[in-house]
Structure formats: C-alpha cells, structure tokens
C-alpha cells in the first residue's frame, strides 16, 4: 500500500516537474535562458577556437611528412575519447593558484571552461579533418601539382572542396562540448550567474531536487543534440547529392 502510494506520489512529482519545466521553456524563464546562453557562449567559443587550431593541424598531419607524424596521429585519435574529468583535472592543476598559469587568475571563470572544452574538442576536429584532407589530397594531388598550385592554393582548394565534410567534423566537436559535464564542473566550479551551464546545472538541481529546472535544461540539451545531428545529416546528404562526394 505504502509502496503504491509512494509510486503514485513520485509519478505526480514527475508530472508536476514536467509541466513546470515546459512552462519554464515556453515563458523563456530568465534563469533558464541565462544558463542556456552561457552554455552556448562557452561551447561555441571553444568549438571556434578548436576549429581555428584543429583544421590547420589536420591539414599538416594529412599533407606533410615529418618525423613523429604517425605517433601524433595515433595520439590525436586516442585523445578523441579523452575523459572530460581528466581534462578538467589537468586544466585545474594548470590554472590553480600554485600551478604554472595560476597568476592569470582564470580558475572558476568562463575562460577556464572555454580552455578546458577547447582541449576536449581539438582532437576531435583535428582527427576528423585529417581524414577528410587525406582522402581529398589522395584524389587531387596529381591534378593540383599539374596545374602548378602552390601550398596556399592547395590548402584553399582542400578547405573549400572539403567544406561539407569539415562542417560535420566541427558539428561533432560541438556535440561533444555541449554534452560534457566533467571538465566545466571542475574548472568552472558551477557558480550561479558566473559559471553555471546546462550540464552542471542539471547535475546540481537533480541532486538538490529542483527537477523542473533540471528537466527544462535537459529538454534544451536534447533538442540541441537533435539539431546538431539533423544539421550534420543534412550537410552530408546535400554534399552527396550535389557533388557525389
């Protein structure tokens, strides 16, 4: 009997949390919107930085031959599965007051979170873009040489012709940044109004019992993930139909 009552009670709680969550979403609740905006700001900045660093790195690994290239490739691919908490820990050690970059005073700021996520996303974009550049280069090398294309023109051609495949690599990086909780939790500290983002807020509110906000943010995260994958799929389909690429 008690058991049943409890069950019924928790169902009610869940129902109530759900309706409140949807209410928060449709009314653009300020605390929810603030967290979503901060999350997107941190992740998009990190993905932008990782793209700016990762694409040239991928191009270099794909096109040039230098000692240690294979080792670098294996390491980059391994780092794609880097546990976010480990990255968080390393960045924490670097930025903590006694660490080598402690003087910058970045710990528990959004900048620290951006650094951590950039490190997390960089291997994904670098490794995936290496594959894109390698297969394109294999196809284009003779023709581009024959046309007398210099290094700059070659890279430009590969970037432009690989644009769709590279876009999906960047989206994969964004998906990763968006979903991780470990790294930003450690280096950001989940401070309200300062470093609280969607994933850390969910972790906190779930343990504290504010299911409505947690669920509302969870829905936003799921929708974002859906949007990223829809975009990625559409880009691939478009490229396949238009260029048979």
């Amino acid at each position: 009997m008690i058991c049943r009552q409890n069950f019924g009670g928790s169902m009610n709680d869940l129902w109530q949390a759900m309706t409140t969550a949807i209410n928060l979403l449709v009314t653009f609740d300020t605390s929810l919107v603030e967290i979503v905006v901060r999350s997107l700001g941190v992740s998009l900045t990190a993905v932008f930085l990782a793209t700016v660093l990762g694409l040239p790195l991928g191009a270099v690994m794909a096109l040039s031959r230098f000692p240690g290239r294979r080792v670098l490739l294996v390491i980059t691919h391994s780092l794609m599965g880097l546990p976010p908490v480990v990255v968080g820990l390393i960045v924490l050690l670097m930025l903590s007051r006694s660490g080598p970059l402690g003087a910058l005073g970045l710990l528990f700021t959004p900048t620290a979170m951006i650094i951590a996520q950039t490190i997390l996303v960089l291997p994904i974009i670098a490794a995936l873009s290496t594959t894109v550049f390698e297969s394109l280069w294999q196809e284009y090398e003779e023709q581009l040489m024959s046309l007398g294309a210099g290094p700059r023109a070659r890279i430009q051609a590969l970037l432009w012709d690989g644009r769709f495949a590279l876009m999906t690599a960047v989206l994969a990086g964004f998906g990763r940044a968006n979903a991780e909780v470990g790294a930003v939790m450690i280096v950001g500290g989940n401070i309200d109004h300062v470093t609280r983002v969607m994933t850390t807020a969910i972790a906190l509110e779930a343990s504290r019992g504010d299911l409505a906000l947690a669920l509302g943010l969870g829905i936003v995260l799921l929708l974002l993930s859906l949007a990223i994958n829809t975009a990625s799929y559409s880009v691939r389909e478009f490229a396949r139909q238009r260029y048979q690429a």
């Binding site: 196809e139 284009y140 003779e142 023709q143 040489m145 024959s146 046309l147 007398g148 210099g150």
Partner: peptide
C-alpha cells in the same frame, strides 16, 4: 609547373 606552360590530361579525369 607554376607557370602553366604545360598542361596534362590524365587517363581518369580529376
């Protein structure tokens, strides 16, 4: 080759 005084057509067009 950068002067493009010569051009080549390959067996499989790229």
């Amino acid at each position: 080759l950068q002067d493009q005084r010569q051009a080549m057509v390959f067996q499989r067009p790229v």
